[in-house]
Design a protein around this nucleic acid. Sequence first.
DNA 1: CGTTCCCTTGAGACCGCTCAAAGACCGTGG
DNA 2: CCACGGTCTTTGAGCGGTCTCAAGGGAACG
Lengths: 249, 249
Amino acid sequence: MASTASQNIATPCAKCPLRELPVFGGRLIDVNVIQAFKIGELTVAPGGTILLEQARASHLFTVLSGWAFRYKTLEDGRRQIINYALPGDFLGLQSSMSETLGHGIEALTDSVLCVFPRDKLWTFFASDTQLAYDVTWLAANQERSLDEQILSLGRRTAIERIAYLLWYLFDKARGLGMTKRNQLDMPMRQSHLADTLGLSLVHTNKTLQRLRKERSIELDDRTLRIINEDALKKLARVDDVENATRPLI
Amino acid sequence: MASTASQNIATPCAKCPLRELPVFGGRLIDVNVIQAFKIGELTVAPGGTILLEQARASHLFTVLSGWAFRYKTLEDGRRQIINYALPGDFLGLQSSMSETLGHGIEALTDSVLCVFPRDKLWTFFASDTQLAYDVTWLAANQERSLDEQILSLGRRTAIERIAYLLWYLFDKARGLGMTKRNQLDMPMRQSHLADTLGLSLVHTNKTLQRLRKERSIELDDRTLRIINEDALKKLARVDDVENATRPLI
DNA sequence: CGTTCCCTTGAGACCGCTCAAAGACCGTGG
DNA sequence: CCACGGTCTTTGAGCGGTCTCAAGGGAACG
């Protein structure tokens, strides 16, 4: 069905809509290099598995459209969402180059991913320094956002964590042009938020309501509206990060 | 003093003691390449700052000897330790290649670090594919251990977190030959552990005692003894990771 | 021998948890 | 069109894990 159809209408890198975006401005790799690296596209439906937690990863992905998330689980079922992937995010590298994965990746919406062969990475590293550099840049930068997530989980209170997460996601989506005014379509359920924040579902719900009552956000079914961005940032104690452009693989 | 003296006795890469270790076996970069990349050594005393939280990082480091840790702080002083660096660990890349740092690095013991110029990284990427590949490998692998830390903070209980952290550190040190039997010299104080685990100092102390009472560990002044490794791993729900060799820059 | 740093202990408060159940919304089928 | 089941959100009640505050004890060091 959807996934089969999309194989035939694969987006050529030259027509990649992401390349137009300012966030990726000025540091784009030669289209032909990327195109040569790319072996196909993967289409996944909401709730679909992109990478199994125990699997050995043989591919690398760039999200072309849609939302996904990376997670780990404990034997007894406790799940922790590590981060969310939006268009332009590069996935699969984390699995320490060729060992088993250790984390799963699941789609939240209908998603399309560009697929690259892991075992060709070496070849492309050798032939294109820019690509090597960019992959490293992306890996290093993802670490940065994990650092922030660790700070959140370790030292922020429930309401601060939520404020940070919502602001972070909104800001990231804004850079990708996915927002309208102060409004963002967020596909995850409260249980996803809870599993991201290290909180229980019930407490997440109650804390969300506190944020609504103080008019910092609105959050109906699946759309987030930021009513008071400054209040949110202050609460989350966001240290303004210069939003530099980033590479796109 | 110490730091001046050490400039004169810099370890040539050819005599790097780390290269002997099995953990780094079989995937070592040509000594001459590393040696050309290395511009000096940095010696730091316990409590000394390796990288300031607000600074712009211009160097990359490999820990040659000693313990250090990476941390972030919130304005009001709450500190979160992100991870610990032991010999062979590569530092400074996280600062998303040339932006401001966002985290600090501090030495726990007398430490010696090999220093590399960040702005030459590109040059070496271009001239040595293996080095580029290894740097990326290290970045990806560090992400892996941050994933685990996120799982801990988000979903493990206090006692599980401690069990995991102690086992993780012990296992890592064991790979480096820093343990004697079941015993490890751990330079951090309980306040460091608390700031790593996202717990208060008091609760860390009380939980530590529970682990001692059930004879899983001993922890006197600064030495950790693992009495019952299996119990620890079971409590922490460690999924046995194949301990592959890793690159050394 | 006083100061300082660290570890330990106790007491009480609060944040976030679990359990349980009631709305709300939606698609499906009778 | 309504009944029904499913998924998700919301509420309430009570428990407990972790926190803060406060103080005491031990070891190292000048």
